[in-house]
Amino acid sequence: MADMVKQCEHCDLSETEKFSLLKQAVENYEAKENNLIQILHMAQAIFGYLPDNVLKFIAEEMDLPFSKVSGVVSFYSLFSTQPKGKHNIKVCLGTACYVRGGKKIVDKIKELLDIEVGETTEDMNFSLEVMRCIGACGLAPAIAIDDTVYKRVNPNKLRQILAEYE
C-alpha cells in the first residue's frame, strides 16, 4: 500500500481516481477507528493535503462523526488542511540544528521567498515548514526539500540551493 501511495504522490490523477484510491486504503485498514491516523497519512499523500471534502469522505466511509476526524487532524502537526507548494521546504529546528544556526536559515528563507513559516509562495512553488528534528543531528544544521536532506546548510548558500527548484 505504501508503495502505491508513494507512486501517486507526484503524478496527476483525476479527483475520481484519487477518491477511489482513498476508498481502497480505507478498506485495506478495515475502516477500523484505531487506524484513522494511518488512513489520514494515506489521504494526505494522495491529495497533497486534507481539504474538508476528503475528511467528510473518510468520516462517512469509517462511520465516524466529522468532528472526530477533524479533531484528530487539528491535533497532529503533520496534517495540513492548506495546500502545499510544489516543493516543501522543511527546516529542522531541533536542538542540535538550533545550536548550529538553524534559526538564521529560517530567517534567510523567509527573506528570500517572502513568506512566513507555514505559508506557501504565491506561485505555489515553495511552502515553508519548521520541523522538530529529523534525526540528522550529526550533520546540523539540516533542511529537507521534498525528500532530499541537505546537511551542514550555510545560510549564505541558500539562494543556490533554492535555485535548483525554480
Binding site: 477500523k32 484505531n34 491516523i37 494511518q38 489520514l40 491535533f75 502537526s77 522538530r132
Partner: peptide, 26 residues
C-alpha cells in the same frame, strides 16, 4: 507498525496509547 503524525507529546506513554487507538494524543 503505527506511524505517528508529528506530536511530541505522543512520546508520553498514555498519549502514545491514545494515538495508537486513532485518537488525539492527549
Amino acid at each position: 507498525i503505527r506511524i505517528g503524525a508529528g506530536a511530541f507529546v505522543c512520546g508520553e506513554e498514555t498519549a502514545l496509547i491514545a494515538s495508537v487507538e486513532g485518537q488525539r494524543g492527549e
